[in-house]
Amino acid sequence: MSQTRLVLGCGYLGRRVAARWQEAGHRVVCLTRSPETAAEFERRGWGAVVGDVTDAESLKALPTPDVVLHAVGYDRGSDRSREQVAAEGTANAWDSPAGGARRYIYISTTGVYAQSDGAWVDEESPTEPDSDGGRANLAAEQIVRYRFGGRAGVGVVLRPSGIYGPGRVMRSAEQVRAGEPVRGRADAWLNLVHVDDLAAAVCLAADAPEPDDLFLVSDDRPLTRREYYGLLAERLGGPEPTFTGEGGRVDGLGKRCRNAAIKEYLGWSPRFPTAAEGLIDALGDDPAD
């Protein structure tokens, strides 16, 4: 049966989910801050509303959907803080017609975990984020998971690890091709998920009868940074990567993400179980453009 499905933040992930929902016969409506992007969405056959999650008044034009995907990324060029975009933006969306959805899926981040000693993390692990983005997303999670606690199965939080895919490895690719030293430790862990596998997880969460309210979404095997950049070099014909040691974006060894829960409860099975398979696809052109 056709439903109305709303995408808040129709970017790298959101466009893929919108396309899948359209192919399934659903009416898709997307929120965008840009009139030009709204026109593009309408050419694709999607409805479009021009607005901003940080502007509660603009959200009154949204429809009341069956399902919401909330995947609003942070624009570093914006004058808004991460707290305003993630936490306040989620509260505004919940208080708009979007809050009447039967299923509300929020895309968070594994940045809510601060573990940095190489420990394994899952849905039960402590969340004590040490970054503004991690804290803002954790606050948004609380809204989705607990604000309407009496509505079982409505709010679902997905915590994806590092999202990659076509167009999302090119900075690293250029660095590897040039033989530039990579900042940080070679033995620190990377957790990744291909954007198409994350889109599949969103669709499963949208259609499950009564899913749990939290899932970590990561591929089947964390890689060390040495393994990941070595794979890139192999694919691109670049030199063996070198590393600067300490001083990278992540201190320590990082963490390792488990995906057992989403596999067991939603039947998710990644098409790209590791970056070894996913990078072949990711180094091609982006079909969502």
Rank of each mutant, 00 (worst) to 15 (best):
Met1Lys: 14
Ser2Leu: 05
Gln3Leu: 14
Leu6Asp: 04
Val7Ile: 15
Leu8His: 01
Gly11Asn: 00
Gly14Val: 01
Arg15Gln: 14
Arg20Cys: 05
Trp21Ala: 06
Trp21Arg: 04
His26Met: 02
Arg27Asp: 11
Cys30Asn: 03
Leu31Ile: 11
Thr32Pro: 02
Thr32Asn: 03
Pro35Asp: 10
Glu36Leu: 14
Ala38Arg: 09
Gly47Arg: 05
Asp52Thr: 04
Asp52Arg: 05
Leu59Thr: 01
Lys60Thr: 12
Asp66Leu: 08
Val68Arg: 05
Val72Leu: 04
Tyr74Lys: 07
Gln84Phe: 03
Thr90Glu: 02
Thr90Val: 12
Tyr104Ala: 00
Ser108Gly: 10
Thr110Cys: 11
Tyr113Asn: 06
Tyr113Ala: 05
Ala114Gly: 13
Asp117Thr: 15
Asp117Lys: 13
Gly118Lys: 02
Ala119Gln: 14
Ala119His: 11
Ala119Thr: 15
Ser125Phe: 10
Pro126Phe: 06
Pro126Gln: 05
Thr127Gln: 13
Gly134Met: 10
Asn137Glu: 04
Leu138Trp: 06
Glu141Cys: 09
Tyr146Cys: 14
Arg151Ala: 14
Pro160Lys: 09
Pro160Arg: 10
Ser161Glu: 01
Pro166Glu: 13
Gly167Trp: 07
Arg168Ser: 01
Arg168Pro: 00
Val169Trp: 07
Ser172Val: 03
Val176Lys: 00
Glu180Thr: 13
Ala186Asp: 12
Ala186Thr: 08
Leu190Asn: 10
Leu190Pro: 05
Val193Ala: 05
Ala201Pro: 01
Asp207Ile: 02
Pro209Ser: 02
Glu210Gln: 15
Pro211Leu: 06
Val217Ile: 14
Ser218Gln: 09
Asp219Asn: 13
Asp220Leu: 15
Arg221Ala: 15
Arg221Leu: 12
Leu223Ala: 15
Tyr228Asn: 01
Tyr229Phe: 15
Leu231Ile: 06
Glu234Cys: 10
Leu236Ala: 03
Glu240Tyr: 08
Pro241Phe: 06
Pro241Cys: 06
Thr244Leu: 07
Arg249Thr: 14
Asn259Lys: 13
Asn259Gln: 08
Ala261Phe: 08
Ala261Glu: 12
Ala261His: 14
Lys263Cys: 12
Glu264Gln: 15
Glu264Pro: 03
Trp268Ile: 02
Ser269Cys: 12
Pro270Ala: 07
Phe272Asp: 03
Phe272Gly: 00
Ala276Phe: 09
Asp281Cys: 10
Ala282Arg: 07
Gly284Tyr: 11
